[in-house]
Simulated scan of single mutants.
Amino acid sequence: MQNLYYDKWINGYHFVVLGPTYPMSKLSKHYDTVLSETQLKWLAKQLAQSPHNKPTFVFLHEPIPNTVAGSNGGYLINGDKLRNILNQYSSVLFFSGHTHYTLKNNPGAVYHDHFTMFNTSSVRNPITSNHKSIGDSEGLYVEVDDHKVTVRGRDFTNRMWINNFTIRINS
Protein backbone atom coordinates (compact mmCIF):
# COMPACT_ATOMS: atom_id res chain seq x y z
CA MET A 1 0.00 0.00 0.00
CA GLN A 2 1.16 3.51 -0.76
CA ASN A 3 -0.38 5.12 2.35
CA LEU A 4 -1.58 4.30 5.84
CA TYR A 5 -4.98 5.55 4.71
CA TYR A 6 -7.10 5.04 1.60
CA ASP A 7 -10.64 4.99 0.30
CA LYS A 8 -12.63 2.63 -1.88
CA TRP A 9 -16.00 2.82 -3.59
CA ILE A 10 -18.15 -0.33 -3.59
CA ASN A 11 -21.55 -0.35 -5.32
CA GLY A 12 -21.88 3.43 -4.91
CA TYR A 13 -20.93 3.43 -1.20
CA HIS A 14 -17.82 5.19 0.03
CA PHE A 15 -15.46 3.38 2.44
CA VAL A 16 -12.64 5.36 4.06
CA VAL A 17 -9.86 3.70 6.06
CA LEU A 18 -7.69 5.91 8.27
CA GLY A 19 -4.25 5.00 9.59
CA PRO A 20 -2.67 6.70 12.60
CA THR A 21 0.98 6.97 13.51
CA TYR A 22 2.71 6.84 16.88
CA PRO A 23 4.44 10.10 17.77
CA MET A 24 8.07 9.28 18.52
CA SER A 25 8.16 11.53 21.58
CA LYS A 26 5.37 9.57 23.21
CA LEU A 27 6.28 6.08 22.05
CA SER A 28 8.15 5.13 25.21
CA LYS A 29 5.40 6.30 27.57
CA HIS A 30 2.05 5.85 25.85
CA TYR A 31 0.28 4.05 23.05
CA ASP A 32 -1.42 7.24 21.91
CA THR A 33 -1.60 7.87 18.19
CA VAL A 34 -2.10 10.85 15.91
CA LEU A 35 -3.58 11.51 12.46
CA SER A 36 -1.34 13.71 10.32
CA GLU A 37 -2.57 17.08 9.10
CA THR A 38 -2.10 15.76 5.56
CA GLN A 39 -4.39 12.82 6.30
CA LEU A 40 -7.03 15.02 7.93
CA LYS A 41 -7.08 17.34 4.90
CA TRP A 42 -7.33 14.30 2.63
CA LEU A 43 -10.26 12.98 4.72
CA ALA A 44 -12.13 16.29 4.47
CA LYS A 45 -11.73 16.21 0.69
CA GLN A 46 -12.92 12.58 0.48
CA LEU A 47 -15.99 13.23 2.62
CA ALA A 48 -16.93 16.25 0.52
CA GLN A 49 -17.10 13.87 -2.47
CA SER A 50 -19.32 11.33 -0.68
CA PRO A 51 -23.03 11.24 -1.48
CA HIS A 52 -24.95 12.70 1.45
CA ASN A 53 -28.03 10.56 0.83
CA LYS A 54 -26.05 7.34 1.46
CA PRO A 55 -23.92 6.31 4.41
CA THR A 56 -20.17 6.79 4.24
CA PHE A 57 -18.23 4.18 6.22
CA VAL A 58 -15.12 5.41 8.04
CA PHE A 59 -12.74 3.06 9.86
CA LEU A 60 -9.97 3.73 12.36
CA HIS A 61 -8.44 1.35 14.86
CA GLU A 62 -8.54 3.86 17.74
CA PRO A 63 -11.78 5.50 18.91
CA ILE A 64 -12.32 9.22 19.16
CA PRO A 65 -11.73 10.14 22.84
CA ASN A 66 -14.73 10.25 25.17
CA THR A 67 -17.24 8.72 22.78
CA VAL A 68 -17.77 4.92 22.67
CA ALA A 69 -17.13 2.55 25.57
CA GLY A 70 -13.55 2.57 26.78
CA SER A 71 -12.53 5.67 24.86
CA ASN A 72 -12.01 7.86 27.91
CA GLY A 73 -8.35 6.81 28.04
CA GLY A 74 -7.37 8.99 25.12
CA TYR A 75 -5.62 6.92 22.41
CA LEU A 76 -6.04 9.48 19.62
CA ILE A 77 -4.18 12.69 20.43
CA ASN A 78 -5.94 14.88 17.85
CA GLY A 79 -9.31 13.17 17.96
CA ASP A 80 -11.01 16.55 18.33
CA LYS A 81 -9.84 17.52 14.84
CA LEU A 82 -11.16 14.25 13.41
CA ARG A 83 -14.45 14.70 15.20
CA ASN A 84 -14.85 18.24 13.87
CA ILE A 85 -14.43 16.99 10.31
CA LEU A 86 -16.82 14.04 10.75
CA ASN A 87 -19.43 16.20 12.52
CA GLN A 88 -20.07 17.95 9.21
CA TYR A 89 -21.54 14.75 7.73
CA SER A 90 -24.53 13.11 9.40
CA SER A 91 -24.27 10.24 6.91
CA VAL A 92 -20.92 9.07 8.37
CA LEU A 93 -20.83 5.74 10.21
CA PHE A 94 -17.53 5.55 12.13
CA PHE A 95 -16.17 2.18 13.28
CA SER A 96 -13.33 1.81 15.79
CA GLY A 97 -11.85 -0.89 17.96
CA HIS A 98 -8.78 -0.88 20.20
CA THR A 99 -10.62 -0.88 23.54
CA HIS A 100 -11.93 -4.48 23.26
CA TYR A 101 -15.10 -3.48 25.14
CA THR A 102 -17.86 -6.03 24.68
CA LEU A 103 -21.07 -5.38 22.78
CA LYS A 104 -23.13 -7.40 25.26
CA ASN A 105 -25.20 -5.25 27.61
CA ASN A 106 -23.11 -2.22 26.77
CA PRO A 107 -25.01 0.94 25.83
CA GLY A 108 -21.65 2.65 25.20
CA ALA A 109 -21.02 0.47 22.15
CA VAL A 110 -22.79 3.11 20.03
CA TYR A 111 -22.37 6.86 20.34
CA HIS A 112 -24.44 9.43 18.46
CA ASP A 113 -23.14 12.90 17.71
CA HIS A 114 -23.83 14.57 14.34
CA PHE A 115 -22.69 11.19 12.96
CA THR A 116 -22.81 7.68 14.48
CA MET A 117 -19.85 5.91 16.07
CA PHE A 118 -19.53 2.18 16.77
CA ASN A 119 -17.21 0.26 19.06
CA THR A 120 -16.44 -2.97 17.16
CA SER A 121 -15.53 -5.06 20.25
CA SER A 122 -12.85 -7.68 19.57
CA VAL A 123 -12.44 -11.02 17.86
CA ARG A 124 -10.07 -11.94 20.68
CA ASN A 125 -10.82 -11.37 24.37
CA PRO A 126 -13.55 -8.73 24.56
CA ILE A 127 -13.68 -7.13 28.00
CA THR A 128 -16.44 -5.76 30.19
CA SER A 129 -16.50 -2.19 31.50
CA ASN A 130 -14.67 -3.36 34.63
CA HIS A 131 -11.90 -4.84 32.43
CA LYS A 132 -12.90 -8.47 32.95
CA SER A 133 -12.25 -10.67 29.91
CA ILE A 134 -15.32 -12.59 28.79
CA GLY A 135 -13.22 -14.91 26.62
CA ASP A 136 -15.51 -14.74 23.62
CA SER A 137 -15.09 -13.43 20.12
CA GLU A 138 -17.41 -10.65 18.98
CA GLY A 139 -17.86 -8.24 16.15
CA LEU A 140 -20.33 -6.36 14.01
CA TYR A 141 -22.32 -7.50 11.00
CA VAL A 142 -23.33 -4.62 8.75
CA GLU A 143 -26.10 -4.95 6.17
CA VAL A 144 -26.78 -2.14 3.71
CA ASP A 145 -29.69 -1.65 1.35
CA ASP A 146 -30.99 1.39 -0.51
CA HIS A 147 -32.99 2.70 2.43
CA LYS A 148 -31.28 1.61 5.64
CA VAL A 149 -28.19 0.26 7.36
CA THR A 150 -28.56 -2.47 9.96
CA VAL A 151 -25.67 -3.10 12.35
CA ARG A 152 -25.93 -6.25 14.45
CA GLY A 153 -23.67 -7.60 17.14
CA ARG A 154 -22.42 -11.13 16.60
CA ASP A 155 -21.02 -13.57 19.16
CA PHE A 156 -18.65 -15.56 16.94
CA THR A 157 -17.70 -18.07 19.66
CA ASN A 158 -21.26 -19.27 20.21
CA ARG A 159 -22.44 -18.51 16.68
CA MET A 160 -25.30 -16.33 17.92
CA TRP A 161 -26.61 -12.83 17.41
CA ILE A 162 -26.19 -10.51 20.38
CA ASN A 163 -29.87 -9.86 21.02
CA ASN A 164 -29.55 -6.45 22.63
CA PHE A 165 -27.40 -5.08 19.83
CA THR A 166 -29.25 -4.20 16.64
CA ILE A 167 -29.02 -0.66 15.31
CA ARG A 168 -31.02 0.50 12.28
CA ILE A 169 -30.19 3.75 10.54
CA ASN A 170 -32.36 5.14 7.76
CA SER A 171 -30.49 6.89 4.99
Rank of each mutant, 00 (worst) to 15 (best):
Y31H: 10
L35C: 09
L35Y: 07
S36L: 13
S36F: 07
S36R: 03
E37Y: 05
L40H: 10
K41D: 14
W42G: 08
W42M: 12
L43C: 05
L43M: 11
Q46M: 12
Q49H: 11
P51A: 13
P51N: 13
N53M: 06
N53K: 12
T56Q: 05
T56D: 02
F57T: 01
F59D: 05
F59K: 04
L60H: 09
L60E: 07
H61W: 12
H61Q: 13
E62H: 11
E62T: 12
P65Q: 09
P65N: 10
P65E: 05
N66V: 02
T67Q: 06
V68C: 08
G74C: 10
G74L: 10
Y75D: 04
I77C: 00
I77S: 06
N78L: 11
D80I: 06
K81D: 13
K81E: 15
K81H: 12
L82D: 02
L86K: 00
N87I: 03
Q88F: 01
Q88K: 15
Q88H: 09
Q88W: 00
S91T: 12
L93S: 01
F94T: 04
S96C: 15
G97E: 02
G97M: 02
T99Q: 03
T102I: 08
L103F: 05
L103K: 05
P107N: 10
G108M: 08
G108A: 09
A109I: 02
A109L: 08
V110K: 03
H112C: 03
H112N: 14
H112Y: 13
D113E: 15
D113T: 12
H114M: 09
H114F: 08
F115S: 07
T116W: 03
T116G: 05
T116P: 06
M117P: 01
N119M: 09
N119Q: 15
S121V: 06
S122C: 10
V123T: 15
V123Y: 02
V123N: 06
I127H: 02
S129H: 04
N130L: 04
S133I: 07
G135R: 09
G135V: 07
S137V: 04
L140R: 04
D146K: 14
